[in-house]
Write a protein that binds this DNA or RNA. Structure first.
Length: 458
RNA sequence: GUGAUUGUAGCUCAACUGGUUAGAGCACCGGUCUGUGGCACCGGGGGUUGCGGGUUCAAGUCCCGUCAGUCACCCCA
């Protein structure tokens, strides 16, 4: 449609905003449980923050331009460089290990597709200053706990785990020299998405012998450490890395998330800076793109900011996650205002002009209620009450309130059938006189009688 | 950036091989109904058929371009 948002950008109408808020709430709630603290940085950064170290692969998709001061700038495509700079600047002062998270809006200039827009929000969770595999286990546990928090289970989402150091050792043991390992990584990354013959061709072209090719193509099928060839498993080069992965899995088990996790040595991660355990979260059916990806990047802080600290982290975008939640009907369907009270004109509207109505609304709000009403002074007295109540229901309000006579105020619940809903009348005079005990009585009754109309959405 | 495919109201869709003022349901607005008020019914607003050209007596329908969506590449979050 013409005149809409720019391609790849989204308008968040209240319903969509509620869904976004639902995801953000889960992110923040779980981060808090794991004792991470929130930070943020600028959405606009110097261009070279991204071109210097991340390489050309990212440069072609940057949303960049020259600002009015002649500076080359870019909308941030990822948070890690900003994070690295912030940590490096205060590396000595920060208490380790650092547990930080952020929910930046990120931008990339590339053709939009399902699950990939030009803009998205991405939870970033990072740990700095801890090199042990326990930190890796803690990090993955955060990601999985978010899935749980949103109502997903181990049948919906799978975590796939690999380890760059282990993979390096395995390839070396197979006899592949380091200069050719990059090509092998590329093939492993695409192993599931391209025909086996293509993989074989590419590996052969990379200079691997038939034996090596066979050994490499076995790797993605390994589901347990014991399934590795014996000579690989027992090699002195490989063993320490296998031991670490074993310990890592033991920690995951203790943290209660091991049933979500599979070994998958074809998980490579595109970004070149990963150095250790890496992981991705996928929907179990494999219909969508990765929900989440991350791992250990022990050299990046040093390369980027000169702080020699081990670090690890993950990013989780709102787009794919949102699609999965919608598919599983785990998203709030519609928002409504959810106001406590909706004021309508009742039988007493003629005795109480709009001024009285507004005064009551004002006092109710001052007493702590959220109050909605039709913004027409005219219809307050002329529109049939039943039609006003219809509007109140559609608004999602929990109860209606009106002048039911010259001397009384009626509060009536909107949950369920109107006839069965709780209702109560209060004397209007003390309420209009801002009598505190009258409002206290109203609040008590409301709290005891009126239930939320959307108990499942909260 | 490459290729394929789609584009009618806010949403989901209709309109025979081109043929009167492009329709319906839902949603929205107003109203009616004092025993099914999260119901039924009545009425209303809203579309230069994505946009721009072309063919034709006549285009939502055919052709070209363009923009946008979707999918697959590329690549990655």
């Amino acid at each position: 449609m013409a005149g809409g948002a720019l391609p790849g950008f989204r308008d968040f109408y209240p319903d969509e905003f509620a869904q976004r808020a639902h995801i953000f709430r889960a992110w923040r709630e779980v981060a808090r449980k794991y004792a991470f603290v929130e930070y943020d940085g600028p959405p606009l950064e110097p261009l070279d923050l991204y071109t210097k170290k991340s390489g050309d692969e990212i440069a072609g998709q940057l949303y960049n331009f020259t600002d009015k001061g002649g500076r080359e700038v870019a909308l941030r495509p990822e948070m890690t460089p900003t994070f690295a700079r912030m940590v490096a600047e205060r590396a000595n002062a920060l208490r380790k290990p650092v547990r930080w998270f952020s929910i930046p809006q990120l931008f990339r200039y590339e053709r939009a597709q399902r699950g990939r827009l030009r803009e998205h929000y991405q939870l970033n969770v990072d740990i700095v200053g801890e090199g042990s595999e326990l930190a890796d286990a803690e990090l993955l546990s955060v990601a999985i706990s978010i899935m749980k928090e949103l109502g997903l289970d181990a049948a919906d989402v799978r975590a796939r785990v690999s380890d760059r150091r282990l993979l390096n050792a395995l390839l070396t043991e197979i006899g592949i020299e380091e200069s050719r390992q990059g090509a092998v990584y590329a093939v492993l990354d695409k192993f599931a998405r391209q025909p086996r013959e293509v993989s074989i061709t590419k590996l052969t072209e990379a200079g691997l012998s038939a034996d090596m090719v066979e050994a490499v193509l076995e790797l993605p099928t390994v589901k347990e450490i014991s399934a590795l060839r014996e000579n690989l498993r027992n090699s002195a080069t490989v063993k320490p890395h296998l031991d670490r992965l074993t310990t890592y899995f033991a920690h995951l088990h203790s943290l209660g998330v091991s049933e979500w996790v599979d070994i998958d040595l074809s998980i490579v991660r595109g970004l070149a800076y990963y150095t250790g355990i890496v992981f991705e979260l996928f929907d179990a059916k494999g219909e969508l793109r990765a929900i989440c990806g991350g791992g250990r990047y022990d050299n990046l802080l040093n390369d980027l900011g000169g702080a020699d600290l081990p670090a690890l982290g993950f990013g989780m975008g709102d787009v794919v996650l949102g699609e999965l939640l919608k598919e599983r009907h785990l998203m709030p369907e519609s928002s409504g205002t959810g106001a406590d009270l909706f004021f309508v004109g009742g039988n007493g509207a003629l005795e109480h002009p709009i001024g009285d109505a507004l005064r009551l609304v004002h006092l109710l709000r001052a007493a702590g209620f959220s109050v909605d009403y039709g913004l027409s002074a005219d219809r307050y007295q002329t529109q049939p009450t039943r039609n006003q109540v219809d509007s109140a229901k559609k608004s999602g309000a929990r109860a209606v309130i009106c002048f039911s006579s010259g001397t009384e105020v009626l509060v009536h619940g909107l949950a369920g059938k109107l006839k069965e809903a709780p209702a109560h009348t209060f004397a209007s005079r003390p309420l209009l006189a801002a009598d505190e005990t009258a409002f206290a009585a109203l609040k008590d009754w409301f709290a005891a009688s009126i239930t939320s109309r959307h108990p499942s959405n909260d």
